[in-house]
């Protein structure tokens, strides 16, 4: 058996984990805000958050280069202030994963929050409990099942991100070579065995994640969400 360099797997896991953590907190804040408040232009903001779902990955990649490229506003700022270069680095791959998985997580969290009966929150309010504690002890635990599904979807989307990652992070073996990039360039180079190896690895990661979520949901369905 041929031994392959496993760095693309570790890099993909690192990129997907970091982007999922960022997506988790960003989506919670955005969804909570959008669920609770009505304001002028709300539907436009909603559309902007969901836009990456319908845009081709090349457009997202192009947008990221414009914003985070060496002459882009954020790219220049980050390099001047912290010496962080986004293009041709794994950070760029993490940002690309974040942008493409945010709408998936946002939709899941919104749906999960909307499923929580407002009566439970109102009962807690009449008991004099603060909004933060209501969120921590009522809304979040009751929405957790949907949030977890969103997390897994986002992680899977992050680990499989290809187009935007290629545009902003490029293909530098050992530096920005994630599993999807490794598959594409192995195929391009005619290394079919290597491509198949990575296809099996990424499929195994996906199947494991989905199986675990389904198991967890079944295990906890007996009381969460029921009265």
């Amino acid at each position: 058996m041929i031994a392959y360099d496993l760095s693309p797997l570790f890099l993909s896991l690192k990129v997907a984990t970091i982007s999922t953590i960022l997506v988790f907190f960003t989506s919670l804040i955005l969804a909570r805000f959008m669920c609770r408040y009505d304001f002028f232009g709300k539907s436009v903001i909603d559309a902007l958050i969901l836009l990456p779902l319908v845009l081709p990955p090349t457009v997202i990649g192009f947008g990221l280069i414009v914003l985070f490229g060496m002459n882009g506003p954020f790219g220049k700022l980050l390099e001047d202030l912290f010496g962080i270069r986004i293009v041709f680095s794994w950070v760029g791959a993490a940002i690309a994963s974040f942008v493409v998985s945010l709408p998936l997580m946002y939709q899941s969290v919104m749906a999960a929050f909307e499923k929580v009966d407002p009566r439970w929150e109102n009962v807690a309010r009449t008991m004099g409990v603060s909004e933060w504690r209501i969120f921590r002890t009522i809304t979040f635990p009751l929405a957790w099942s949907g949030i977890l599904a969103g997390l897994i979807l986002s992680f899977a989307r992050g680990i499989g991100e290809f187009g935007a990652t290629l545009m902003i992070a490029g293909y530098i073996p050992g530096v920005t070579e994630t599993v999807p990039l490794a598959i594409y360039f192995a195929y391009e180079a005619g290394e079919m065995e290597k491509a198949i190896f990575w296809v099996i690895v990424i499929s195994a990661v996906g199947v494991t994640a989905i199986t675990w979520v389904n198991y967890w949901r079944k295990k906890n369905a007996y009381r969460i969400g029921r009265e």
Binding site: R119, W120, V123, A124, T126, G128, S130, I224
Partner: peptide, 17 residues
Amino acid sequence: QKRRVGYLFQDYALFPH
């Protein structure tokens, strides 16, 4: 939160978790 009102909802709305 400041009204100090106890409210029993029609179908009780007990926290299921």
